Computed example of a mutant assay.
Amino acid sequence: MPPLIKKMRKTATAFRAAGIGAVTACLSLTLTGCAGLDTTAPSAVRADAKATAQAARLGAVDCREVKCIALTFDAGPSENSPRLLDILKERQVPATFFLLGARHIEKFPQLVRRMAEEGHEVASHTWDHRILTELEPKEIREELERPNEAIERITGRRPTLMRPPQGRTDETVHEICRELGLAEVLWTVTAKDYTTEDPELIESRVLDQAERDGIILLHDIYAGTVPAVPGIIDALKERGYVFVTVPQLLAPGKAEPGKVYR
């Protein structure tokens, strides 16, 4: 087995051990994050919003008029990210990256910089992938502040979005996110790519769930995910979808700190 493949599998295995596999318990309740949360849909954000300079900055796509969908990737950057970025660039598709700090942002700063330079939204998935609802407020702040500071040092822009590990959040997390200027983003589509290395299966799971205003959850740390991305993009474009970042999905509205979106 080539050394790079061994290294990639070792990284993915370590991440599973850190807790990503436990997300199954949450997903058994709902495909859109843990049940019982007060969440806001993109269409609701757009409904009463007025066009602003912020919306203009996000580009010409108006998701009130066209059928939009957002690709999001958690837990990178990784050794797989360069190929993923190549694919997105070739197909002119923007994405939103919810990045981990430890062993990811700190290991691949050049990829974080490239994501920002190529027009993707760079956001936070915490520093160590600790379950925020199990932590004390001081620990939650540290999990959120460290990746924000690291991303800002690399890109010059502080994140305004975060995704809680396993989608687990509560009022304490909301309040701290509000203090830190962060909105929480969950998902409506999951390929459960942590359970398989089969790109065709990952692709079919995404396509079966895709709907307008969807937020697709994938992880570019797993071997089967990046190979599935070209097929996902091509099939959804054929269905008339336009790919956007999460901020573009909400425009001309804007995510508010402390609120949860999906």
Score class of each variant (00 low, 15 high):
197 E>S: 12
244 V>I: 11
229 V>F: 06
209 Q>S: 03
213 D>S: 14
234 D>I: 10
234 D>Q: 15
232 I>D: 07
199 P>I: 00
214 G>Y: 09
212 R>G: 05
206 V>M: 03
208 D>R: 12
223 A>W: 13
233 I>P: 10
197 E>F: 10
214 G>C: 05
226 V>S: 12
201 L>I: 11
211 E>K: 15
218 L>A: 12
236 L>P: 00
244 V>R: 02
250 L>M: 10
202 I>R: 01
220 D>C: 07
197 E>K: 00
229 V>N: 11
205 R>V: 04
207 L>M: 06
214 G>D: 00
244 V>L: 07
241 Y>M: 14
219 H>C: 13
199 P>C: 04
242 V>P: 03
222 Y>T: 10
240 G>D: 13
256 E>V: 15
218 L>Y: 12
247 P>V: 05
249 L>I: 09
218 L>N: 06
230 P>Y: 07
213 D>R: 07
243 F>K: 04
219 H>F: 10
249 L>Q: 02
257 P>D: 09
256 E>S: 13
227 P>L: 01
216 I>T: 04
214 G>V: 06
251 A>F: 13
227 P>W: 11
259 K>R: 14
206 V>L: 02
234 D>R: 14
200 E>H: 14
256 E>Q: 13
240 G>T: 12
239 R>N: 03
252 P>C: 12
227 P>E: 02
257 P>S: 11
243 F>A: 00
251 A>E: 00
213 D>L: 06
255 A>M: 04
216 I>Q: 04
220 D>S: 08
207 L>S: 01
224 G>L: 03
237 K>S: 14
210 A>V: 11
211 E>R: 15
198 D>C: 07
253 G>S: 03
230 P>D: 08
223 A>M: 15
219 H>M: 11
240 G>E: 14
225 T>R: 02
210 A>Q: 06
207 L>C: 00
248 Q>F: 08
209 Q>M: 13
239 R>L: 11
241 Y>L: 09
218 L>T: 09
200 E>V: 11
250 L>I: 12
242 V>D: 08
213 D>G: 13
248 Q>A: 04
206 V>W: 05
220 D>P: 01
251 A>R: 05
221 I>R: 03
231 G>M: 12
228 A>W: 05
233 I>Y: 11
244 V>A: 06
255 A>W: 04
221 I>W: 04
201 L>A: 13
197 E>L: 09
220 D>G: 05
214 G>E: 00
231 G>K: 15
232 I>H: 10
213 D>K: 10
219 H>E: 12
250 L>W: 06
228 A>G: 08
199 P>E: 09
229 V>G: 01
258 G>I: 01
244 V>D: 03
239 R>D: 08
217 L>I: 05
219 H>W: 13
216 I>Y: 12
259 K>G: 02
218 L>M: 12
231 G>A: 13
198 D>G: 06
210 A>Y: 11
247 P>F: 13
200 E>P: 00
238 E>Q: 15
247 P>E: 01
201 L>Y: 04
197 E>Q: 10
243 F>S: 04
227 P>C: 08
239 R>E: 14
232 I>L: 08
199 P>H: 02
